[in-house]
Design a protein around this nucleic acid. Structure first.
Length: 740
RNA sequence: GGGCGGUUAGCUCAGCUGGUUAGAGCAUCUGCCUUACACGCAGAGGGUCACUAGUUCGAAUCUAGUACCGCCCACCA
């Protein structure tokens, strides 16, 4: 907590360090002042109300001429605090007046006519009055041109001695009288209705007044240098990297930091004032020796407190006891990753980097991960004030903490903001349930056998076992890559797909024995358990509670198992398990199974009814693959009898499908609907013909053949051959049907 | 006004260095209470990749501009 004693001392020390170095100074700044509450307000404490106001056009006489410059203002009483008239240097209408002297109406004070690019020639008359003490923007102009900052207000909103005859009047009464006087002197050119937005005090509704006050500042340009260099050189990296642009743009244009706040809660500014105004900078009340010639008891500490970020920017080291050299500081500074939101890149991140270099001599971290900000379904950032948020506790209550976590991870585009609604969380809820169910299945099918999760018996593997191990290996590699690149959502999606598709939909279904309740082959069960263990560990960062629970159940009877999943090692990719050609073989089996399912579904074959499967293969390797493993996919494809080989003939009255490298026939006699089957084949035929046409055009283009790389051309040629082959087969099958 | 993102199926998003029949989940439609899961299984439909111009043999992917959405910062005499 930054208001704890140790951290408070660090804050004061830092103030003194910067003050002694000449980097902290006292200056003027425009604040929002409430004349009723007699306090300054932060921008956040203002309420902005749209009102119908007026735009008054006031004439200023040019000294020594019979000419007038007319300016438009919404606050005529500030005329009394004007210290210049300004025009745009490029404005041809008013160029000739630059450098001349104008006379303030009523008070007849002399003020210069200056040129400043800020003035918009399109607004009003293109001439602006400059009131440095009562407008933030005019203040900036005043600084640029070294204008006097003339304060005309008292703290209660009445006018002070600089207001001449209007002294003592309330600002609005003064406005009224001034306008009347101008009218009388014909110096009020005209009045227009004007729509404006007025800042008011959130407590008392009083219109706030921009007010010049004494504030403390930190000079930033020197502090910024090493912090800019750190990001430019890559010593500090943002993830995603484009956030470094935001950081650098701000740092390159950095302005001095106003660190004093007129609040009651915060670190008090460590400055003490003697009755005569003499200043002492000190953590505690100065001792007699520290303020020679003054009575320490008579010193008064500055009433203001420090900006909250003035303590937060020290956080990476103040939390470890700095400025003392503690073992914690030694061990934990610098750290590696800072995780935060983009909206505080300036407020916090940039300042921590600057403080790190200034006080520790090194950057506080090497990587800054910027996470997304939740938005609602319309894309608007969720916030308390808009009331468009979803309460995370409500989601946790309903679906569980893991669901909240994995759902947000899955839904958040890497580096961007997720738009979420209530059903965003169903995805995660379903997934966590799926994980739990499949785990339950594996554990049930242990049938009393002790699970083995650390090793696999490589002499006892079937093709599907080796396949899932290869897929697992690839998955671990992909997840590691994604995490290394700080792509959390990508990592979670890789795992989601692996678990749901590869593991649940294919592997577990393939190793299920054909007979209900039959014991699963020991080798496959070993692999299933082994893979499940790795899944739990890979998913643990995303689904912490459920993976822990399952892990403890799975390893309950396992001698020497860690007492928590977090003590287990992160899975390593074992490249000897990777087998791309095997994955390609499996893909073919999957395609056959999918084609069969598709035929059956489209022809409305009752799920309970099994059917024979005839496969004419182009290559006997596939035939063998199918024959040898039919027992595994028999139930997936509802196969009664399998006939496959290069010479297989199409059985009469059978439905067909053509995939790359094979033709599939299912004899369906009574079940087949001629029209439906014709439609199916025709549709596929049309699809392939379109593709072939496009491809043929491409391959007939001499420019393509001349410029495209060889491997692309041969790939396209192979594709063409495949299309032609499939079209021919489809044609034959279609002709046969037409002959029925 | 400045800076930075985004725009791909009805919705939420993948698509990394240009060559895939542009993918997934939700939603929709069809059929299923099939040995863990109906929070499920299988199948299907659905996209001129915001628009315009350019670079290229080839653009969802690169460049420029336009429009719209959003975030941060500044400002509105």
């Amino acid at each position: 907590f930054t208001l704890d004693e140790g951290l408070s001392r660090a804050v004061a020390q830092v103030f003194i360090h910067l003050y002694d170095k000449g980097l902290i100074y006292r200056g003027h700044r425009i604040v929002n002042w409430c004349p009723s509450c007699k306090t300054s307000l932060s921008d956040d404490e203002l309420e902005w109300n749209e009102t119908e106001g007026s735009l008054w056009y006031i004439k200023y006489k040019i000294k020594g001429e019979d000419e007038y410059l007319t300016v438009a203002t919404t606050r005529p009483e500030t005329v009394l605090g004007d210290t210049a008239i300004a025009v745009n240097p490029k404005d041809p209408r008013h160029k000739k007046w630059i450098g001349r002297t104008a006379l303030l109406p009523i008070l007849e004070r002399e003020i210069p006519v200056i040129a400043d690019p800020h003035i918009d020639p399109e607004f009003g008359t293109g001439i602006m009055k400059v009131t440095p003490a009562h407008d933030a923007n005019d203040f900036e102009i005043g600084r640029r041109h070294d204008l006097p900052e003339l304060n005309i207000l008292n703290i209660d909103g009445t006018l002070n001695e600089h207001a001449g005859k209007y002294k003592g009047l309330d600002r609005f009464e003064a406005r009224k009288q001034l306008l009347e006087d101008l009218q009388k002197k014909s110096q009020l050119d005209k009045t227009e209705k004007y729509h404006l937005v007025l800042g008011t005090c959130y407590r008392c509704d009083t219109i706030i007044e921009p007010y010049l006050s004494d504030q403390w500042f930190v000079k930033m340009s020197e502090l910024a240098k090493p912090a800019i260099e750190a990001v430019n050189s890559g010593k500090i990296q943002f993830h995603p990297s484009y956030w470094s642009k935001t950081y650098l743009h701000w740092m390159d244009n950095i302005r001095d930091w106003c660190i004093s706040r007129q609040l009651w809660w915060g670190h008090r500014i460590p400055v003490w004032y003697a009755p005569d105004g003499k200043m002492f900078v000190s953590v505690d009340r100065p001792t007699a020796a520290e303020c020679p010639g003054y009575d320490p008891a008579a010193l008064v500490q500055d009433e203001d407190v420090l900006d909250t970020w003035f303590s937060s920017w020290l956080w990476p080291f103040s939390t470890f006891g700095w400025p003392d050299k503690t073992p914690e500081l030694d061990k934990f500074y610098p750290t590696k990753v800072l995780v935060t939101a983009s909206e505080i890149i300036f407020l916090w991140v940039a300042r921590m980097v600057m403080a790190g270099y200034e006080f520790m001599g090194a950057a506080p971290f090497s990587d800054v991960y910027i996470h997304g900000t939740v938005r609602d379904e319309r894309g608007i950032k969720m916030s308390k004030s808009l009331g468009n948020g979803i309460d995370p506790l409500e989601i946790t209550e309903k679906f569980g903490a893991d669901t909240l976590r994995i759902s947000l991870t899955l839904a958040t585009p890497d580096g961007q903001d997720p738009c979420i609604g209530r059903n965003t969380f169903e995805v995660g809820r379903n997934f966590v349930n799926k994980l739990y169910q499949v785990s339950r299945f594996v554990m049930m099918r242990l049938d009393g056998r002790t699970p083995v999760v650390d090793t696999i018996d490589r002499t006892d593997l079937v093709i599907f076992d080796r396949w899932i191990l290869s897929r697992l290996t690839q998955t671990i590699t992909d997840v590691d890559t994604a995490l290394t690149e700080y792509r959390l959502s990508a990592a979670s999606k890789i795992l989601y797909n692996f678990v749901w598709e590869d593991f649940c939909s294919w592997y577990v279904e393939l190793i299920k024995p054909d007979q209900p309740g039959a014991v699963i082959r020991a080798g496959s069960l070993n692999v299933a358990t082994y893979v499940l263990d790795k899944i739990l560990k890979l998913l643990h960062p995303f689904v912490p509670f459920v993976t822990e629970e399952i892990y403890l159940q799975l390893t309950a009877d396992m001698p020497g198992a860690p007492e928590t999943i977090t003590f287990g090692p992160w899975p390593k990719a074992d490249s000897s398990l990777l087998n791309p050609s095997l994955e390609a073989d499996l893909k073919q089996i999957q395609e056959v199974v999918t084609a069969v399912r598709s035929i059956r579904s489209e022809l409305n074959v009752p799920p309970g009814k099994k059917s024979d499967l005839h496969v004419r293969v182009k290559d006997e390797i596939l035939g063998e693959l199918l024959r040898n493993h039919v027992e595994y996919f028999r139930s997936l494809a509802r196969v009664e009898k399998l006939v496959c080989g290069a010479e297989v003939k199409k059985p009469p009255m059978s439905a067909s499908a053509v995939i790359s490298g094979a033709e599939i026939f299912i004899p369906l006699a009574s079940l087949i609907d001629l029209e439906v089957e014709k439609g199916r084949l025709q549709k596929e035929l049309n699809n392939l013909r379109d593709l072939l046409e496009k491809l043929s055009r491409k391959l007939a283009n001499p420019d393509f053949l001349a410029h495209a790389p060889e491997d692309i051309i041969s790939k396209e040629r192979a594709k063409k051959e495949d299309y032609e082959e499939r079209i021919e087969k489809l044609n034959r099958n279609l002709e046969q049907i037409l002959g029925w």
